[in-house]
Design a protein around this nucleic acid. Sequence first.
DNA 1: TTGTAAGCGTTATCAC
DNA 2: GTGATAACGCTTACAA
Lengths: 361, 361
Amino acid sequence: MEERKGSATIPDVARLAGVSTATAARALGNYGSVSASTRAKVEAAAAELGYRANSLARSMVTGTTNTLGVVLSDIENPFFSRVLRGISDVAHEAGFEVVLVNTDESSETERSAVRVLTEKRVDGLLVCPADAGSTAHLVSVSDSGVPLVLVDRRIKDVRADSVVVDNRAAGRAATEMLAALGHRRIGLITGMDGELGEAFAAPGLKGIERAMINTTAGRAAGYRDALQDAGIDVSADYVVSEGFRREDAVRATQRLLSLRRPPTAILALDSLLALGALQAMREMGVRCPDDVSLVGFDDADWTEAVTPPLTVVAQPVQRIGAEACRLLLERIEGSTRPPVHRVLRTELVERGSVAPVRRRS
Amino acid sequence: MEERKGSATIPDVARLAGVSTATAARALGNYGSVSASTRAKVEAAAAELGYRANSLARSMVTGTTNTLGVVLSDIENPFFSRVLRGISDVAHEAGFEVVLVNTDESSETERSAVRVLTEKRVDGLLVCPADAGSTAHLVSVSDSGVPLVLVDRRIKDVRADSVVVDNRAAGRAATEMLAALGHRRIGLITGMDGELGEAFAAPGLKGIERAMINTTAGRAAGYRDALQDAGIDVSADYVVSEGFRREDAVRATQRLLSLRRPPTAILALDSLLALGALQAMREMGVRCPDDVSLVGFDDADWTEAVTPPLTVVAQPVQRIGAEACRLLLERIEGSTRPPVHRVLRTELVERGSVAPVRRRS
DNA sequence: TTGTAAGCGTTATCAC
DNA sequence: GTGATAACGCTTACAA
C-alpha cells in the first residue's frame, strides 16, 4: 500500500538500507559479492518499498532480453498451437519468455512483426514464413546477426537453421498405401489457392515445385510422385482446392463425389480438411471406408474418436517447435556452426478409414 | 552488410546526417517537427547505416512498452488457443504485442510468470488464474497499479475486471434438457481432482461452491441444481472424475457404463472429455444416441463431423479473449471506473447426440 | 525548425 | 566488500 508513486528503484532501496546503489544492486541482482548482513538489510528495504526490478533497464545494459519472438500464421490452428507449445516449453525451461505474433499468412504482417520484434530486441526469432516470395526481411534479420530459425517451412535464400517435416515423402507414403490397396481413382483435397491448382493441371506439373514452401504443396507433390510410380494418370479432376477451412473441404468433397467416376479414396492434406471430408461424406450418406477410403494428415485429438477412426499421416508437431527452439537457443549461446536443416519423420498411422478398393464401385 | 558492430544508434545516424541527435530522433520517431529536407537526410543516413530503433530505450523513457502479458494454463488446449486468438487480434489492432506464458494450472508458475511480466513492464496483464486459493500475487499486481483483467475465471478477492461465462447456468441448461427428455440417470464426467469429487458426495454438497473458480465446477453445480429441481437424487456414482485428458474421459465413461444401472445420458464438462466419452462409447459398442445420449461443452471444430454430430453447450470463446483485451486496453488508456465483470452467454446447440430416454434401458 | 542537456533504472568498471 | 561513476539508447523540456 505504501508504494503508489511509480515503483521504487534501486537508489530508493539503497537509501533506505543505508548502502550505495551499487551494493543494493548487487544484493538484489545476485551478482558480485555482498556480505550476508548487508544483503539482509537490502532485502528488507526492498520488501518494505515493494521494489520490483525493471527488466528494461537491465536489458539496456546487458544487451539481452531473455525473450524469443515467435511469428506464425494462426495460433488458433491446432497445428500451430502445438508447435508453440513445444517452443514455449523449451524456452521457459531455459528461462526465456515468448512473444507471439499471428500473421494469417500475410507476408506484410510478417514483415512488420519481424521489425517490431527485432526493435524490441528479442534474443532470437522463430518464424514460420508465410510466403517464399518476399523474404528480404528474413535475409536482413539473419545477416544483421539476430539468431533466426525457420519453423515448418524452409526457404533456401535465407541462411538460417530450419526444422521441417518431409512432406513430400509423407504425401507419397499415404498415396502409395492407397495404390497398393488397389485404388486408382484417388482424390486430393489440397486447400491451396488457384495458382497452384493450375500448376497441377499444367503439362509436366512442374509448377508445384516452385511453391514448395507451402507444406501442402510438398504433400501434393508426393501424391503426384506416387501416382506416377504406380502408373496412374494424374487427373486435374481429382485435385480440388476450395480453401483451407473445413467448409471448403466439405464443398471439395462434394465436388469429388459428384464426378461421373468418383474417386474410391480421398487424401485430405491437413487435419481440418479431413474433418470437412468426413463431414461431407456423412452428410451425403457415403460410407467410409466401405464406399470411399479417407486418409488425413496430422494426428488431431479427434482422429480416434470419429467413426471410423481416421487413418492419418502423423507428424511430430510439438517436436517441430521444441527442436526449433533448441536450435535457436544454441545460436543465442553463440554457436556459429553452419546452418542445420532438421527434417523430422512422419508416420503413417493406420486406423479404420481405409479399405481395399471394392470390385465394382 | 556494412552494419556489423552492434547496430547503429541515433547519434550515429545524426552524425552521418549532420544534425543533432534530437533532430534525428524526431525525424525517425515521427514526433516533434522536422523540416522535409532534414527528414530526408536523416532517413537516408538511417537507411545507409541499417538503423533499427531500440524499443527498450524508448520504453525506459516513455514508461510504456506496448506489450501485454497473457498468462493461461495451456495454449495447446483449443479453448485457450481460441481465447488467445481473440486477445491477440484486439491487441494487434491497437498496436500491442503479446507475451505468453503457460502455467499448466500451476499456481507457482503463475506467480513467477506474473512477476517476470511485471518486471518486463508490460502495460497490462490478462490472467486466467490457476487457483482460487493463492491470489496474493494477483492482488499485489492489481494494487500496484498495473492493469489486470481476469479471463474465464473470476476471483472475488482480486479487484480487477473479469470476463467469464455463466458456467452454472450452462450446466443447468444442458442437464435440464436431458431431464426434460425423460433422462433420470445422468452421468457427469468432470475431470476435476479428488477433492471436488468428495465435495460432491458429501452431504449438502456445499464443497463445490468453494472451488467455483474452476469452470467445470461451475458447470457441475449447474448439473446439481437441475437435478435437484427435477427431483432427481444426485448420486456420487454418476459423477466421475478421472482427469482432464481424453484418455481419462475414456476410463470415466467405461466406469459409468459398467455400473449396474448405467446412465442413459452423459454430460461431459469440456470438449476433450466429450471426445473421450465418444471414443469409449464407440469402442464399447454403445450406440449414441440410441443407447446413451451425450452432451458436451464448447463447440470444437470436430463436433459437426463426428457420428452422431454432437450436441454441445457452445461458449463464445474468442469473444472471451477479445472482450477481456478490450477491457484491459481501456484500463491502459487510463479508465478508472470500478471493476466490471462481464458474463457472456452460452448457447445450447442441439445436434444428433441426444434422444429421449428409451422405455426400457 | 533545430540544438543542448538532463534524465529513465539498471549493470559494469574502477578504485578504495 | 563497498562506493563512485560512466555507460546503455532513447525522449523531452528548454533554449536558441
